[in-house]
Measured scan of single mutants.
Amino acid sequence: RLTVMSLQESGLKVNQPASFAIRLNGAKGKIDAKVHSPSGAVEECHVSELEPDKYAVRFIPHENGVHTIDVKFNGSHVVGSPFKVRVGEP
């Protein structure tokens, strides 16, 4: 089962990169992540390998409000996905 680490749920800033990590815990497959902005825009997140069992997911929010992040592994949502994060002040 995958572990999502260091996902900041609030206090993110517009046009500043945000990232979190995913540990695969021995699982093999493909991570896919997309961020949905409050206006409905959908953007791919950048996924990069940090070490053999750990990946970083990076995105840049372009507007204030609550964004939804879909994180999928081999086509299925990971536990807790979709995640909600707040950009800007509430």
Rank of each mutant, 00 (worst) to 15 (best):
S76D: 15
V47L: 03
S10N: 06
K34W: 12
V79A: 07
N64D: 12
K34N: 14
S10C: 03
S39K: 12
V78D: 03
H77C: 08
D70L: 09
T68K: 07
Q16A: 05
T68F: 13
P52D: 11
P90G: 07
D70E: 07
G65M: 01
G75K: 13
R58S: 03
G29N: 01
E49S: 10
V57C: 15
G88P: 07
L50R: 12
V71K: 00
S37R: 05
C45M: 08
E49R: 12
G40H: 14
Y55L: 10
S6H: 14
A27E: 14
G26Q: 01
P90M: 07
E43T: 05
Q16E: 07
K84G: 05
S19Q: 09
P52M: 11
S39I: 04
A33K: 00
A18K: 03
A33P: 07
T3S: 15
A56P: 08
G11N: 11
G88K: 05
K30A: 10
R58V: 06
A18E: 03
A56L: 10
K54W: 01
V14Q: 15
I69H: 00
E9I: 02
E89H: 04
S48M: 10
G11T: 13
G65D: 13
C45R: 03
G29L: 03
S37A: 09
A56K: 09
H77K: 09
S6W: 13
A21R: 06
P52A: 11
G88T: 09
I69S: 00
L12D: 00
L50Y: 04
S10M: 12
R58G: 09
R86G: 14
L7P: 11
N25P: 04
R58H: 05
A33L: 14
V4K: 08
N15Y: 09
V71H: 00
H77G: 13
G88A: 09
P52C: 07
R23Y: 02
L24N: 05
V14E: 08
A18M: 15
G65P: 00
K72Y: 06
S37D: 04
N64G: 13
L7R: 03
N74T: 11
G26I: 01
F59V: 06
F73R: 03
D53M: 06
H46K: 12
Q16D: 05
I69N: 00
F83K: 07
Y55C: 15
L24I: 01
S81W: 01
K28T: 13
F59E: 00
I69K: 00
Q16F: 04
H62L: 12
E44V: 02
K34S: 14
E63Q: 11
T3K: 15
R23A: 12
L12R: 01
T3E: 15
E43V: 05
V42W: 10
C45Y: 06
K28P: 13
V78W: 02
I22H: 00
H36R: 11
P17D: 15
K28F: 04
D32H: 05
A21F: 02
A27L: 06
K54L: 07
R86Y: 12
A27S: 12
L12K: 02
L50C: 13
E63R: 06
V85P: 08
Q8L: 10
P38D: 00
F20N: 04
V35D: 04
R86E: 07
V85Y: 15
P82Y: 02
G75H: 12
Y55R: 13
H46D: 03
G40Q: 04
A41G: 11
P17K: 14
T3L: 08
V14Y: 01
A27D: 15
I60T: 10
F20W: 08
V35L: 15
K54P: 03
T68S: 10
F20Y: 01
E44G: 09
G75F: 10
L7M: 09
S37E: 02
E51S: 07
K34L: 08
S10Q: 13
G75I: 06
V78F: 03
P82F: 01
A21I: 15
K13P: 04
H46M: 10
S39F: 09
R23Q: 06
F59M: 11
S37I: 13
E9K: 03
V78Y: 04
T68A: 11
T68E: 10
N25R: 11
V79I: 07
K84V: 07
K54Q: 08
R23I: 11
V85W: 11
N15V: 01
P52T: 14
K28G: 03
A41T: 14
G40E: 10
E44F: 03
S37W: 09
I31K: 01
H77Q: 13
F59A: 02
Y55D: 08
N15S: 08
E89R: 10
S6F: 14
H67S: 12
G26P: 03
S10D: 08
L2Y: 07
G88I: 05
K84P: 06
H67Y: 12
A18V: 15
T68G: 13
N64K: 11
G88W: 01
P61Y: 03
F20D: 00
Y55E: 10
P17W: 06
V42T: 13
A56R: 09
R86N: 13
S6P: 10
V87H: 01
A41N: 15
E44C: 07
I22A: 00
P52N: 12
A27F: 05
S81Q: 03
S39A: 05
P17R: 11
A18W: 02
V79M: 13
R58F: 10
I31L: 11
H77M: 11
K13W: 02
L12P: 01
F73M: 07
S81I: 00
V14K: 15
M5W: 05
E49Y: 06
P82R: 01
I31R: 01
Q16Y: 07
V14D: 01
E49T: 06
P38E: 01
V35Q: 14
Y55P: 12
F83R: 04
I22S: 00
H46P: 15
V35S: 04
K28C: 08
V79C: 09
A56T: 14
P38L: 01
C45H: 13
A27W: 02
L24A: 05
N15R: 02
E43G: 15
G65A: 06
K72C: 10
R58I: 02
P38Q: 00
D70C: 06
G80Q: 10
V14A: 04
F59Q: 00
A27Q: 08
P61R: 00
S19A: 04
I60P: 00
H36N: 15
K28M: 09
H62T: 10
M5K: 08
L24D: 00
E49F: 10
G11I: 15
H46E: 15
M5E: 07
K54A: 03
P61E: 00
A41L: 12
K72Q: 14
K54D: 05
I60N: 06
I60G: 03
S76P: 07
N74I: 08
D70S: 10
N74G: 11
D70M: 07
P17L: 04
A27Y: 01
L12Y: 01
K13D: 05
V14H: 03
A33T: 15
K28L: 09
N74Q: 09
C45W: 02
V4E: 10
P82I: 02
S10R: 04
C45N: 02
F59R: 00
V79E: 12
V71G: 00
A21S: 14
L7A: 02
D53R: 05
S76C: 09
S37M: 08
T3A: 06
F73I: 13
V71D: 00
P90F: 07
R86P: 06
V79Y: 06
S10T: 06
S81F: 03
R58E: 08
A21P: 03
L24H: 01
K13C: 13
G40F: 03
V78L: 09
P17E: 13
E89W: 07
G40L: 09
S81D: 03
L2H: 01
P52L: 12
I60W: 11
A41F: 11
A56H: 14
